[in-house]
């Protein structure tokens, strides 16, 4: 049986559909990445799954509990961990007190083990926490009762790269041990790295459901280059470059081909400065999944 099952899940705010007829399943033991640009409706789906908001139409089940059945969903939550995007702790408490509080409601058999990996300063009050410490405390509370399913909304936001890496490896190990993870992200490389399967949401609509292999072939990097001489378009631009902007000796583009090819191509030029980063997700989506959402509206 699937751990999460969405069936035509829809949430409207007036004319705007934050989620529009979203249907997919998350299987047991899977890391499911829910990928989309900011404002695409990822958080809306997650808050629907937790029963915080009510669907306008359609429904979903979480660990077999229908989200419209409040009692069943409340019971199911004993086996769900949740890491929200905005971590609303009671800031007057220390980290330890906050964990004690949640432990009384759902247990904390794995707390110590988690605190060896993620190390928020437990004896300080949470109002003094950095974004990274807040996030780590959030991770500990989400996993400490050893739930079967963990739902995470932008889990790595605020974490430094080292801790992000630690979280990624931790998630891989958890899923090998049979845990199901559903997480949202607007960072393509993160989803590519840890997800087994991915659902892509744009403007409230699910535009694709892919295995990770398919997504890996649809990567991209945002590249900004400063050359020693004015860029000659015919010589510089290749087919794998999209959204190209050339201005004098500066070039900006999103590269959708293989990184090796890009580097081979670039060594032919005199490069003064280069910046290669994650692409704007929306650009990538437009490239791979067309512009259906926009064209429908117009």
């Amino acid at each position: 049986m699937s751990v999460i099952h969405l069936e035509g899940l829809t949430k409207r705010y007036g004319e705007i559909a934050a989620n529009d007829d979203v249907t997919f399943e998350v299987e047991s033991g899977e890391v499911f990445g829910y990928l989309g640009p900011n404002g695409a409706g990822k958080t809306t789906t997650i808050r629907l799954l937790l029963g915080l908001i009510k669907p306008t139409a359609g429904t979903a089940t979480v660990l077999g509990a229908d989200i419209r059945d409040r009692r069943a969903l409340t019971e199911a939550k004993a086996n769900v961990g949740y890491l929200p995007d905005t971590l609303g702790f009671d800031d007057r408490l220390t980290g330890r007190q906050a964990l004690d509080y949640f432990a009384r409601m759902r247990g904390d058999e794995r707390r110590e083990e988690l605190l060896e990996l993620f190390t928020p300063p437990l004896d300080q009050s949470i109002e003094t926490y950095s974004a990274g410490n807040r996030r780590m405390l959030g991770i500990v509370q989400a996993f400490m009762h050893d739930p079967d399913l963990v739902i995470m909304d932008e889990p790595t936001s605020g974490l430094d790269p080292l801790k992000q890496d630690r979280l990624h490896r931790f998630l891989e190990a958890e899923c090998d041990a049979g845990k199901t993870v559903f997480f949202s992200s607007h960072v393509l490389s993160e989803v590519q790295r840890i997800a087994d399967r991915v659902g892509i949401i744009r403007s409230g609509e699910l535009v694709a459901l892919e295995d990770i292999e398919a997504l890996l072939s649809r990567g991209g990097k945002r590249v900004r280059i400063h050359l020693g001489e004015p860029v000659v378009e015919e010589r510089f631009v290749t087919e794998s470059m999209i959204d190209v902007e050339l201005l004098d000796s500066t070039a900006q583009f999103t590269y959708t081909g293989e990184p090796q090819r890009l580097l081979e191509h670039l060594v032919e030029f005199e490069i003064q400065d280069i910046d290669i980063g994650d692409p704007q997700l929306d650009d990538i989506f437009k490239h791979y999944y067309g512009d259906e959402a926009d064209s429908e509206e117009s």
């Binding site: 029963g51 409340t74 939550k77 905005t86 609303g88 409601m105």
Partner: peptide, 18 residues
């Protein structure tokens, strides 16, 4: 206040009814 500061989200992620 709990709703606005998102404390209610975390609180209701526990097996506790509204």
């Amino acid at each position: 206040g709990d709703i606005r500061e998102r404390r209610m989200d975390l609180l209701l992620s526990n097996p506790v009814s509204r």
